[in-house]
Write a protein that binds this DNA or RNA. Sequence first.
DNA 1: TTAAGTACTGACAAAAATGTAAGTAATGAG
DNA 2: CTCATTACTTACATTTTTGTCAGTACTTAA
Lengths: 118, 118
Amino acid sequence: MRKESSTNTLNRNKIHVNCGMAYTLDLIGGRWKPTILWALLEGKLRYSELKKNIPDVSERILVLQLRELEKDGLIKRLVYAEVPPRVEYELTNDGQSMRHMLQIISDWGDLHRPKKAN
Amino acid sequence: MRKESSTNTLNRNKIHVNCGMAYTLDLIGGRWKPTILWALLEGKLRYSELKKNIPDVSERILVLQLRELEKDGLIKRLVYAEVPPRVEYELTNDGQSMRHMLQIISDWGDLHRPKKAN
DNA sequence: TTAAGTACTGACAAAAATGTAAGTAATGAG
DNA sequence: CTCATTACTTACATTTTTGTCAGTACTTAA
């Protein structure tokens, strides 16, 4: 939950206005968001499939991150009226438009992060 | 301060190992880091010049962010033995190597963030 | 009637990030 | 002796993010 009037939040919003970079990083910067986006670049996934792909995230946090990505227009939530329920997540056009950028960010990291031993 | 054994930190580190994207985003994801890096892309700056460029950041936080960028090898801290003191910050080679990526992240943001009302 | 499957939600707690306000050290200028 | 200058540091407080654990709703199958 965000307190709309804290210096913290005011600063965040102020930065967005004149720094596209900060804006972008806020959208994709959550702990599990890169992993989620990466998975969805392959195509649509059910909630349970995402969970399987990302075993370390707790359900609460997974849902939180999905909701934020949805609110920010990067993913779509598709609900099918079935029992048991079926919900699929997929990238929106805006989400898809990140593909190239995400690849470049990923490449930079792969190239520069400390090498694994062995 | 980071608690090395918290689930939070363990998750962070585990993600880094198999997601270059998450690793990169952790390096540049601090509140003021994009702004700092952006400023330093133009060239070296003194501490006081950075402060002037980024009026909303408090000194404590500015120093914290600079220290992290330095620890992560993206910027260099150059200290001159003068009085009054002079300290300059500049990008390292690794920092410079981000230029293209940062530009792309910035462009995506400029293109997709909600438009200012006129 | 009980259990299984799916996609969650809620109350609570811990950890991390960010911010505020005041103070410090060294030295040369006046 | 006092002040200005620069680049910080310290103690503390607030806000935000992330995590734990248990529980829910709905329907079908056994």
